[in-house]
């Protein structure tokens, strides 16, 4: 039965498996060395302790927003960083406000934050109202969080995770009351607004590096090293591919149309096309418009 399947192209599978392999291998390595692999300093992260310190001095709450994405690795990652923030805040008995948009994220946040207070030995300081579900609609959420910011005059704020348009509403509102902000959005479109309005910004996957840097858990450190290997692999592939592509561009083949002449390769005859977008088997739609 030819032509019933999409040709997958082996490269995608091999590349994905290779990346997964790098990550798992380095997690294994890091576990063996109990996390003593090197991670460079990430400037924005040193600001975390300072800002909590300032909030404590002023006796004002620390605001945390794990983005408005659904429950996924990004919001979980943000909550892991917030666990660290809460730990510091709990030490100084500083009030916190964690505002969620997604009910599932809210559920996880509740569990994580309560757990932090428990492990810090101050379960009585945990206020169930400090982790709040505000609204599941983007702009109602923005309005609600702005209200909290303006009324409670939060002194430090951590905006981390998947932010969309509301990023600037929150950041400028915080700026107008002079709060220190540490921010990061995995959405590249929002990073410029954080860069413009916030004090410290984590760019791109500095966000993913953050919890490895803060916690030094072997799993996270190893994974980060694995990601670095994968980045190098991507960069090398691109370089190599560019060279192969350039060589293909210089190649001449006999022209079928004009005997005795030569022509350059067509786009779909080039090697990288073959590797990255393999041809699909011929398939005639059953009843499509002709």
């Amino acid at each position: 039965m030819d032509g019933v399947y999409y040709e997958k192209g082996w490269l995608g599978v091999v590349f994905t498996l290779m990346v997964a392999g790098f990550i798992l291998l380095n997690i294994y390595r890091a576990r063996k060395t109990s996390g003593k692999l090197f991670i460079r300093r990430i400037p924005g992260l040193n600001a975390i302790d300072d800002s909590i310190g300032r909030a404590t001095e002023m006796g004002k709450p620390v605001l945390m927003v794990p983005g408005i994405g659904t429950l996924n690795a990004i919001s979980v990652q943000a909550l892991q960083i917030f666990a660290y923030v809460t730990k510091t805040a709990a030490k100084f008995a500083n009030p916190i406000r964690l505002c969620c948009l997604d009910p599932a994220v809210y559920t996880v946040a509740q569990e994580i934050i309560r757990d932090v207070y428990q492990t810090e030995g101050v379960p009585e300081n945990y206020d169930p109202d400090s982790v709040r579900f505000i609204s599941d609609r983007q702009f109602a959420f923005a309005a609600g969080v702005s209200g909290i910011i303006l009324r409670e005059r939060t002194a430090a704020a951590f905006l981390m995770g998947e932010f969309f348009a509301e990023s600037l509403i929150l950041a400028e509102t915080l700026n107008s009351i002079g709060a220190i902000q540490v921010a990061c959005s995995t959405e590249i479109t929002q990073t410029p607004f954080f860069v413009a309005a916030c004090d410290y910004v984590l760019i791109g996957d500095e966000f993913y590096a953050a919890s490895a840097y803060l916690s030094r858990q072997p799993v996270l450190v190893g994974s980060l090293v694995g990601q670095d290997w994968s980045k190098l692999a991507i960069a090398a592939t691109i370089l190599l591919g560019a060279l192969v592509n350039s060589a293909d561009g210089l190649k001449r083949v006999p022209d079928e149309a004009n005997e005795g002449q030569t022509r350059a390769l067509k786009a779909d005859e080039k090697m990288i096309t073959d590797l990255f977008s393999p041809k699909k088997p011929e398939w005639k739609p059953a009843g499509g418009t002709q």
């Binding site: 994905t16 990550i23 990004i74 990652q77 996957d205 993913y208 994968s230």
Partner: peptide
């Protein structure tokens, strides 16, 4: 940036999926 974020998400996905984290 996107390559980095994608790798970060993939790595986090792997760690969650295999309960490493």
């Amino acid at each position: 940036i996107d390559f980095g974020i994608g790798l970060g998400a993939l790595a986090m996905g792997l760690r969650l999926w295999l309960s490493l984290e």
